[in-house]
Design a binder for these strands. Structure first.
Lengths: 244, 244
DNA sequence: GCAAAAGTGTTGGAGCTACACCCATGC
DNA sequence: GCATGGGTGTAGCTCCAACACTTTTGC
């Protein structure tokens, strides 16, 4: 009992701190890779740009909180989301000591843009030209960009940025945006199709070319079981001739 | 001012929670991969097995806290450490709501074992036969094992588990432990040496064979700049004949 | 000398880059 | 019919798994 009391005192002495979540939301509109940021509508730092975030409530995990915050902003359930890193420097939040658990998400801008609430003053910025943001949010974005490139080189996650039906040239353009390189179209197509993750559709996209490119859909079953399979989409840069 | 007050009230309403760190410490003794666990010497859960952990103090980041805790236990500075994942389910800690930021570390057991404080009742367990632990520590270990395999397949981090001078066959045995496979010695040696990360020494290790194997040391400069270079030590399992 | 482990040589095949070429279509 | 982008064919190269072989030593 004596011991238990001492232990409880030790617990009691610890500082409790605020726990937040911040989401780095990447989107693709068929043209370029973008980042979703909001303009804070409340004090402190009203009017400043910020990542989508919020505090963890008593009955939810960080993952729950991130989903809740993202749903509130975009109206979306089931968005691709992954824990990125926890930021915990004592002075990272100038209002009060706060630990932030960051997440990154991937969404198709076309599909969802009308649902994004106006109240949040949300805006999409090109991934290389986003505004200054509060606290360490810029650092979060840079880390998320790195992680996205790293992960997408090994796992087929970029499909999350595309509509359900897409063409190989569209997919190629997305990869080229993410890695800022150009690929040989023939080799790219073969490499992607060799994964057997795509199912060819009967119809073609005729908007982007005269000949038209066949649509493909993800084989969702295979996709889910292969998320952890190594791929090798991005060769070592020094073996490439056609880097941008 | 009105707005600012409202904002401050919003901050004030949030729950502050305990923030802990837990370290998954992997070690290698030349024979097999092991996990460092401690037996709690205090209530609550006195006598139960647990990962090395502690609470984040007011003036330190999670990284600082993990280093501090690790140093207190092992006497070591500068141990390889990397943030793993943040565990935050509301009920994960049965004493009080606590968020835990987990880290994984790699150390050479031979080099450091005498320094590990007896007070903590620390013990090394084979990586596949560790005892039941409190809270979600088992889940943490499983995730760390996965991450170790994943990361070591692409980056030269396993050197952190070896002494400064080691032989290629020793390194091979380590890789075979981590991945539970066997490699062809000739191919393994060529692959490792092709990275140019190793510097051949003049002396040999004669304990493990009659002929003796040359010692090598890490080229520390190259190692540091190449940590992020992709390697490819572990081929796709289905292309291998000699899986265990 | 011979057993045992370190280390080298070599071969065949898989996969991939680069590039030439063919295809389908709108204008 | 010709420009445009989608898609196929293929030569040559690099890499690498497999395994035969040589080297070095202790007993």
């Amino acid at each position: 009992m004596e011991n238990l009391n001492r232990a409880m005192k030790k617990y009691a002495q610890q500082t409790r701190i605020l726990a937040a979540v911040d989401c780095i939301v990447f989107g693709y509109d068929g043209e370029e890779l973008k980042l979703l940021v909001i303009q804070r509508g409340f004090e402190p730092f009203k009017g400043h740009w910020s990542l989508v975030g919020g505090f963890i409530q008593g009955d939810e995990s960080a993952e729950d909180a991130a989903s809740r915050v993202l749903k509130k902003l975009t109206g979306l359930d089931g968005v691709y989301m992954e824990q990125l890193h926890t930021f915990s420097k004592p002075d990272r939040d100038s209002v009060e000591r706060t630990v932030s658990i960051s997440f990154f998400s991937l969404i198709d801008i076309q599909q969802y843009k009308q649902q994004i609430s106006e109240d949040y003053h949300a805006a999409w910025f090109p991934i290389n030209q986003f505004p200054d943001m509060i606290f360490d949010h810029k650092e979060m974005v840079e880390l998320a960009k790195e992680k996205l490139r790293y992960k997408a080189a090994l796992h087929p996650i970029l499909f999350e940025l595309l509509p359900a039906k897409f063409t190989i040239p569209q997919l190629q353009n997305l990869y080229e945006c993410v890695y800022d390189v150009t690929f040989d179209k023939g080799n790219f197509s073969r490499k992607i199709l060799s994964t057997s993750l795509l199912v060819k559709q009967k119809d073609k996209d005729k908007l982007n070319s005269k000949k038209g490119a066949f649509y493909y859909k993800l084989d969702v079953r295979k996709y889910k079981t292969n998320l952890n399979a190594f791929l090798n989409f991005v060769p070592n840069p020094h073996t490439l001739k056609n880097s941008k």
